[in-house]
Design a protein around this nucleic acid. Sequence first.
DNA 1: AGCGACATTTACGTAAAAGTCAATGCGTAC
DNA 2: GTACGCATTGACTTTTACGTAAATGTCGCT
Lengths: 132, 132
Amino acid sequence: MRHGLDKYYTITELTREFGVSTRTLRFYEDEGLIHPERRGRTRFFRSTDRHLIKEILRGRRIGFSIAEIREIIQIYKEPPGEAGQLRLMMKRLEDKRTELIQKRRDIEETLEEMSNVEEACLTRLAEIGVGT
Amino acid sequence: MRHGLDKYYTITELTREFGVSTRTLRFYEDEGLIHPERRGRTRFFRSTDRHLIKEILRGRRIGFSIAEIREIIQIYKEPPGEAGQLRLMMKRLEDKRTELIQKRRDIEETLEEMSNVEEACLTRLAEIGVGT
DNA sequence: AGCGACATTTACGTAAAAGTCAATGCGTAC
DNA sequence: GTACGCATTGACTTTTACGTAAATGTCGCT
């Protein structure tokens, strides 16, 4: 079943879908994050690559570095078997969780402030531009 | 009342409080984000600077660039008076809001996945390390 | 006066994440 | 068969956000 009838994606298809450049996707390949197949020199992306790209971009939006994203992907590919490694990983997960929760709080605070500013704008607009 | 009896903060006090380097605070000054006073060549920070630094660091955690942060600070300092400017600003606020909401969703998805991974770790640990 | 601790300025360095450019290949439509 | 468009590779460049080093200044203490 593996690699059966999956659709192939060309690099430009994916750049259009995700709004990134070809350079970016090649960069991610160089960094070992994705592994498109080749026919000749042309890359052919499987749906698994496509899915990976989605995750990479999400990580990027959150602010993860390439190194961190690579690490996360590694965890999915080969979850650590040894107990010490597992504990270490959970410790790091805990740290990341704390960081993300902080970040979420930051975002929420900022969203609130933006609402305030927006409201102020509206009243200001109402004041000035009654006849606009 | 202005500049009355406010406390002064030295640069190192603030670096300790916020866990950033002196270089960082001087950099923010160079970038025009904060304006500590001087006695001789030494910087003295007011509580307004301290508050600004808090906001800057929050923006940084969210992923805003220095330019964006400067822009936000500008808005607080001198809200635009002209109607066109106001509209433009609201448009940009809208864009930012969309971006932040997306980012928040990204974070929430990632937090969920982290929970799953953590759970998997726990069961795995239970399997292996019954006697650990 | 001299020491140590902390500050400052200037200037160059750096890592991450691409952007850009030039040369080249490959398929196919005309 | 050649021109065109899309791909590729490799090298070089850019931007952001500071780090780091070197040379000095300043303040308080003893």
